[in-house]
């Protein structure tokens, strides 16, 4: 019972941050979604110790564990695009697959290449 109350309180804190962020986004017409602003705000609050990790950690871990579930109902919406998929589905899929693979390999490849250079230098300076 105590755990359930704790969990619900933590969930309410996250919901409150989300609502405030949504309100700010609408108020000053920010080009990012409320959830992304909320993520940034919570990060700032954690860094400045306004929100302590143990205020929200349990609920946060639980929600993140099931993040995939919350996307499923949107993805199910693809069922209404049967006609589009029949007419140009393979072309669209080819574009998505091609561009996603290129973007992924470029992003991760560059980052790993730059990181490995940094690490090697680091190792050398240590050994001297």
């Amino acid at each position: 019972m105590k755990n359930a109350v704790l969990f619900l309180t933590q969930l309410l804190i996250l919901l409150a941050i989300y609502s405030v962020s949504n309100y700010i986004v609408q108020l000053i017409n920010l080009p990012i979604p409320g959830s992304v602003l909320g993520m940034i705000l919570l990060f700032i609050c954690l860094s400045m110790k306004i929100v302590k990790l143990n205020y929200i950690e349990k609920a946060a871990e639980y929600l993140i564990k099931h993040l995939a579930l919350f996307f499923v109902p949107y993805a199910v919406g693809l069922m209404t695009y049967g006609d589009l998929i029949k007419t140009s589905g393979w072309k669209l899929l080819l574009m998505i697959v091609g561009s996603t693979v290129i973007g992924l390999v470029v992003t991760s490849g560059i980052t790993q290449y730059l990181s490995s250079k940094g690490t090697k230098k680091h190792v050398r300076s240590d050994s001297i």
Binding site: M39, L46, L67
Partner: peptide, 15 residues
């Protein structure tokens, strides 16, 4: 079902 997507995205600040 998607009511919690917003707070779940906010929660990504934890990791």
């Amino acid at each position: 079902l998607t009511y919690l997507l917003g707070p779940a995205t906010v929660a990504l600040a934890v990791p």
